[in-house]
Design a protein around this nucleic acid. Structure first.
Lengths: 356, 356
DNA sequence: GCCCGAAAGTAACGCGAGTTACCAGGCTTA
DNA sequence: TAAGCCTGGTAACTCGCGTTACTTTCGGGC
């Protein structure tokens, strides 16, 4: 048997990188000892002196552990995967940020894979399956599946091979745990804020009424009004495309439906883009915000809400928190907690700025 | 202390995963044969019949290669790493998207690591070093280093251990290749557009004049004017904070400096947020966009530019393209191309909307 | 003086692949 | 008929590291 190392061929500059073996040799101990020290295994007995020698050798050689090899040997990768359309349409990019931060501070890596989930059973299902497949090849210990818009989804079958958590969407097949914003409470807090400011005639600029966000938020609106002994007048609700133009049109409808003295004194826009349009409609009519009409938005799209003039008071979608919670939930699952189809609601806080 | 030995019995289906050995057994061949087939090695001779048998076994068993083990054995991970503050401040998130897409379609993974690069030699240099270190532990084959704002940076020393490319920033130590937007050409194209529309008196709302973006864009402005035989009148330039409020103030300054008939007929705002503020200043004065005053922005922040009313014509920062080009450059470097401190300029296209 | 147990390590195996060297048999060719 | 060559394939080594089982030394109790 040849000795452990084959002689390095002269020509090959093949920078092999320094391994635990090199450290061991340099410190005059066995590789096992190095491994013990590096992993802080208190159950193995290594003298303080040797410990120090090894640490010095690590320093001297600039040793850097090989995560892949470690994963292979220990059968755990410390990797999570996230597959998401957010990569392709970065509206809710904070989900990634939250997940990333949480994973990172837990000493894990988050592998990010793109997907083109169509709005329903995607036209591009293949890409998504491939993404999951790729992640599983990397032996991720768990999967996050995130959407840009709160909605129901079908998860690729192979995702069931490891613990999986849905973020900002929920499993239409009802098998996986999910984390979604508490739309209802969000709608409620917005209206409560307006009521508190003395507004009783509140216009609502609605989204497509079929999507979960609209359903939840509107229910919250009704609840808040009911608590104050009021009811939601259908005349005060207008729906439109989820754009600034849509918001402009809807605001015009509502505002022009009444003579000045009967006009609603506040508008609750179910997203910030629509609020942006509503601003224009209001200003065009020579009305002041919030003097004549108060406005509350939803989503807290920083670039809009924080830069509109006056700055927009809005309900924030807790993307970052949902991402973090996703990773935490995943950690619990991979630690052995049983998988259930539980749904965690995350609070949508009201951000007070200057439009109320 | 802990029972590390887990007989495969207990409740948790310790799903060992099927390996190449299993496939080999199932197909009645050696593991080597399987490896050859899976890697499509044309130099090894395997009969068509065996090939098929192996493929069937792979199917039947649902075999999935272990990327980590493959990386270990083949000494190549197919991973790139990107360390960036973009994760923490997602302004230029499209850089990640571009890089991710490119890497993905090249069959590689992009590991994303966060950093808190302060604006100068960061207060949080430690975090950044740690990020690079972590990526190197994963044995990434190359590094991307990206910033949210075009500027000079110092790269952590260990980044020099693998090919590294800077994106949207450049190496103050002048050793690494970088990819940055062509600010100068961007400024030029904006002004040329205004000139073409007949504007000759053009106000400029400037950024902090020391940053590379301002320097470059302003130079472009001068060039375009010079080509038309004009000069940049200092009176027409106002700087401000890079916010909507800053833009509002600066626009007021410029507009109120002149009587109505001498007023500039166009404003070039060096970023979209300032353009947002300028819009307000213009509208407040009862002027129409673009009828009385045309506006061009810079950055193409979708949420602003596409939703302002009228929609903002602006010069786009080519984040996505820079990200993609970063990965391409990295691929060339890891393929053996020598590392130089070359700087690639990426075009900033003008996006025509409705404000000119 | 002998046995025992803790302290301090070490040899050897396995993780899941890629890769090299080598072998068996059949067909050509001289 | 023997030497060579191609076809089809395999054993064995390697990658860097975790882990288990086993060895050696040494101090102390009886």
């Amino acid at each position: 048997m040849a000795k452990t190392t084959s002689p390095d061929k002269p020509g090959t500059a093949r920078q092999r990188g320094v391994t635990m073996n090199d450290v061991a040799k340099h410190a005059g101990v066995s590789r096992t000892a190095v491994s013990f020290v590096l992993n802080n295994r208190e159950d193995a007995s290594i003298s303080e002196e040797t410990r120090v020698r090894i640490a010095e050798a690590v320093q001297a050689l600039g040793y850097r552990p090989n995560a892949g090899a470690r994963a292979l040997a220990s059968q755990r990768s410390d990797w999570y995967g996230i597959v998401t359309e957010i990569v392709t349409a970065p509206f809710a990019v904070d989900i990634i940020k939250g997940a990333q931060d949480q994973a990172w501070s837990d000493g894990r890596f988050l592998l990010i894979a793109p997907s083109d989930q169509g709005d329903a059973a995607g036209p591009n299902q293949g890409m998504e399956d491939a993404a999951v497949e790729k992640l599983l090849e990397q032996r991720v210990e768990g999967l996050l599946y995130a959407a840009t818009h709160h909605r129901g989804v079908h998860v690729p079958p192979s995702a069931h091979e490891v613990p999986t958590v849905l973020v900002n969407c929920f499993d239409l097949d009802g098998k996986l745990p999910s984390i979604v914003p508490d739309e209802r409470a969000g709608g409620r807090v917005a209206v409560e804020r307006l009521l508190k400011a003395g507004h009783t005639k509140i216009g609502v600029i609605n989204l497509d009424p079929r999507i979960p966000a609209a359903v939840g938020r509107l229910q919250g609106v009704r609840e808040a009004l009911a608590d104050a002994g009021l009811e939601l007048d259908p005349e005060l609700v207008a729906a439109g495309y989820a754009t600034a133009d849509g918001g402009y049109d809807a605001a015009c409808q509502i505002l022009d439906r009444y003579p000045a003295k009967d006009r609603p004194t506040a508008l609750f826009c179910l997203n910030d883009r629509m609020a942006m349009g509503a601003y224009d409609a209001i200003k065009e009519r020579g009305l002041a915000i919030p003097g004549d009409i108060a406005v509350i938005g939803f989503d807290n799209q920083e670039l809009i809400a924080a830069y509109l003039r006056p700055k927009l008071t809005t309900v924030a979608l807790p993307f970052e928190k949902m991402g973090a919670l996703g990773v935490q939930t995943l950690a619990a699952l991979t630690a052995g907690q049983p998988i259930t189809a539980s749904q965690q609601l995350v609070d949508c806080p009201l951000l007070e700025r200057s439009s109320v």
